[in-house]
């Protein structure tokens, strides 16, 4: 059976990893390829690179980053952040990315999901969904543009729609939990995962190892993504996997 995936996420700003990654004795703490190689050594199952500048100029820098990382690191690489066209997807995949993550652009033009899936295969297309509870109307609402703009769209309806359109995986971030370090949004994944038949990656809220145990034991998610707990060395991947094994979560 497939192992549950542990996925560190790196924010890349103009070719440099933005948040300090300070668990490593790296000469250059901003160098994506060096950080990626260290995560590979630790046993990460996949890496997500999020291009947070996402201007045209930064896009070609991102292609360089992917090219460099894929010369040193031999595991699945997902790239997201501001990707708006099939041509951009193709350039990133050619440079060595394995999957492309679409977010705001998928809402603006859902046909982009289908075009990408047709050209590169469903497995290449991840749709990232940023979700926040709408307390007034009592539903999970989709947000775009880094969580700044509310769309009024129901997250579960949208999740089903993007899978129909060809998404091969969903990266679902709970904005309610993101940054709180108080655990993954169990309720969200319990609602969303049974509704769709592609892998779901949980994101937002990881603070301690128990949070990962919790999300894998209580929800049918395929992977869990986190950034700062890994970057600041608060959780190391080997320790996390040992802990998960104790609770009979299948990890590599």
């Amino acid at each position: 059976m497939l192992a549950k995936r542990i996925i560190p996420c790196l924010d890349v700003d103009n070719g440099r990893v933005k948040k300090g990654v300070n668990f490593l004795d790296l000469v250059d703490v901003g160098e994506p390829a060096a950080i990626a190689a260290e995560y590979e050594k630790q046993g990460a199952d996949e890496l997500v690179f999020l291009d947070i500048t996402a201007t045209n100029q930064a896009r070609s820098t991102m292609i360089d980053v992917v090219e460099k990382v894929s010369r040193k690191v031999f595991m699945p690489l997902t790239v997201g952040g501001g990707i708006k066209s099939v041509a951009e997807m193709q350039n990133l995949l050619r440079a060595g990315a394995d999957k492309i993550s679409l977010n705001s652009a998928a809402i603006a033009s859902p046909s982009l999901i289908t075009e990408g899936a047709k050209k590169f295969g469903n497995q290449c297309i991840v749709v990232a969904i940023d979700v926040k509870r709408n307390h007034e109307k009592k539903f999970f609402e989709v947000y775009t543009h880094g969580g700044k703009i509310s769309t009024g769209i129901d997250a579960i309806t949208w999740a089903k729609k993007v899978v129909e359109l060809g998404a091969g995986e969903l990266l679902v971030t709970s904005m309610d939990q993101d940054g709180t370090k108080s655990g993954f949004d169990i309720e969200l994944y319990q609602k969303i995962a049974p509704e769709i038949d592609v892998p779901v990656i949980a994101s937002g809220g990881a603070g301690k190892m128990e949070d990962f145990v919790d999300v894998f034991r209580k929800c049918n998610v395929d992977g869990a993504l986190a950034a700062s707990v890994f970057h600041y060395g608060e959780i190391t991947i080997p320790n996390l996997k040992e802990e998960l094994k104790k609770f009979e979560v299948n990890v590599r």
């Binding site: 059976m1 497939l2 192992a3 199952d45 497995q123 038949d197 892998p199 395929d222 992977g223």
Partner: peptide, 10 residues
């Protein structure tokens, strides 16, 4: 089981 099989297997 989800198809495609996508991920790490033993």
């Amino acid at each position: 089981l989800k198809v495609p099989q996508m991920g790490w297997n033993k």
